[in-house]
Design a binder for these strands. Structure first.
Lengths: 143, 143
DNA sequence: ATTAGTGCAAAGTATTTGCAATCTA
DNA sequence: TAGATTGCAAATACTTTGCACTAAT
């Protein structure tokens, strides 16, 4: 694990203890934390870390292209470190859990020229919405 | 125009002057306004209308299924009255303009069972990102 | 008349900014 | 050392809430 940290070092990212914990917290698959969650986890290891610094670090990681910003609903943005592996998201409309998925087919190719309005289309982002097993179970029991 | 208002009346939506202007402002195609923009436009016709009321009305229209909430980036949500006609969005990464598009193919069918993690998948939301003709032109000239 | 809708003021959540102190390379 | 990074405090953007007043059916 943590080739994220490796890569960052290689790219000359000035390394500080707070940046290190942020990168460590973000490392892995199926990680989709909000800025606040990143801060909370980072603070377990480095209690003094401030929210500002977490926001700074996240912003830079996004700018570097190492992390993707995902805004599923209108709530807090989530940060996905899986930027190097193209994927889409499956979101639970109950609890907001996010999973990385790999659909077949190419959504980009499905947009006809006459539907492009002169845009230079670069990317197709697909978000699948559904109910996760946990929420489905809870719904069946509750009420 | 304004079958939105017709439909709402038919569904027993208690009609007030402020709700009327909100519905009128939202009526049409390729409309993707933020709550604040809706408020601004509504205020042209009804200066006393409050933001609270606009938020209330928008929330209800969404609950009624007459309007869709779209959050492209992490910014303010946008409201799309085109709920009855299934469509996807094409967003300009330069200026944020949104156009409704109708891709061929079915993104939902492109998600294999083994990629569903036990979720009951209900919907596939596709957002195309690109640069609109205006922004492309501006980029070519500037700098 | 009843019940639902309105809007002010205030609080809440998410994120950004200015700037002095601090630390990495 | 020089320039980048940190983090506090305060500001900003967006949205929600409590509650007294008003209006639609």
């Amino acid at each position: 694990m943590s080739d994220l940290l490796e890569r960052l070092r290689g790219r000359g990212w000035r390394l500080t203890s707070q940046r290190r914990v942020v990168a460590e917290v973000l490392d892995g698959d199926h990680v989709h934390l909000t800025a606040d969650e990143v801060h909370a986890r980072a603070a377990r290891r480095l209690p003094e870390i401030s929210r500002t610094t977490v926001y700074n670090a996240l912003g830079e990681l996004v700018a570097l292209g190492e992390v993707i910003e995902v805004s599923t609903d209108g709530r807090a943005k989530r940060y996905d470190p899986n930027a190097r592996h193209p994927h889409q998201h499956l979101v639970c409309s109950g609890c907001g859990t996010v999973r990385d998925v790999h659909p077949t087919g190419d959504a980009l190719a499905d947009l006809p020229v006459e539907e492009r309005f002169g845009f230079t289309v670069a990317q197709a982002e697909v978000t699948y919405w559904g109910v996760c097993p946990e929420c489905a179970g809870a719904a069946g029991k509750g009420e």
